[in-house]
C-alpha cells in the first residue's frame, strides 16, 4: 500500500532523469511496511543501463533513517528501454529482504509501467500495489495497521 502522491513523485523522478536510470528509496517507520518519505538518490553511474547509489550519499541517508527508526521500505529505480521487471544484475544486488523493489519503465513516453517485487535469495516475487488517496494525515499516525486499512478501503455506498 502506497500513497498516490508518493507514487506520483517516484514516476516524476523517473521521467525527469530519462534517458538515464533514476533511483531512490522510500523510508518508513521500522516494522510499519509503510513507504512514507521519498528520497531521490543520485545515480552515481549516470547511465541509461545501470544505476548505483552514490556511496557517500547512501551513508548519510541510511544514518538519517537509522536515527529516525526508519527502514528502506521501498527501493526504486527505472528501466528506460526495457520492461519494469528485475534484471539479473538487479537480483544479484538485491540485499534488503524486507524491502519492496519497485521498477518503473519509462520506455514509452506516454504510459509508464510501475511494478513491485520482493527479491529474496535470488527469487523474484511480484506483488500487487495498492495506491491510496490520502487527505487526512492522521491516517498514518498511531492507528495500527488494521485500522488504517479499514479507513483506506472505504467503498462508495452500494445504493
Amino acid at each position: 500500500m502506497i500513497r498516490r502522491d508518493v507514487v506520483d513523485a517516484m514516476v516524476a523522478h523517473a521521467r525527469r532523469d530519462h534517458p538515464d536510470e533514476a533511483c531512490g528509496v522510500i523510508a518508513g517507520p521500522e516494522g510499519s511496511d509503510q513507504p512514507q518519505r521519498l528520497i531521490e538518490m543520485e545515480n552515481a553511474e549516470r547511465s541509461p543501463t545501470f544505476y548505483r547509489f552514490d556511496s557517500g550519499e547512501q551513508l548519510r541517508v541510511w544514518r538519517a533513517m537509522d536515527a529516525a527508526d526508519e527502514v528502506p521500505v521501498v527501493i526504486y529505480h527505472s528501466h528506460t528501454a526495457t520492461e519494469a521487471y528485475p534484471s539479473r544484475t538487479d537480483v544479484s544486488y538485491a540485499s534488503e529482504p524486507d524491502a519492496h523493489y519497485v521498477l518503473i519503465s519509462t520506455r514509452d513516453p506516454e504510459e509508464h509501467e510501475l511494478r513491485s517485487y520482493r527479491i529474496v535469495d535470488g527469487d523474484i516475487t511480484e506483488e500487487d500495489i495498492q495506491v491510496v488517496d490520502v487527505v487526512e494525515s492522521y491516517m498514518f499516525s498511531h492507528t495500527g495497521r488494521d485500522d488504517t486499512i479499514d479507513r483506506h478501503t472505504t467503498l462508495p455506498d452500494p445504493e
Partner: peptide, 9 residues
C-alpha cells in the same frame, strides 16, 4: 551497507 545498484541486463 549493502551496495544498492542494478541495471537493465
Amino acid at each position: 551497507l549493502p551496495a544498492v545498484a542494478g541495471g537493465m541486463r
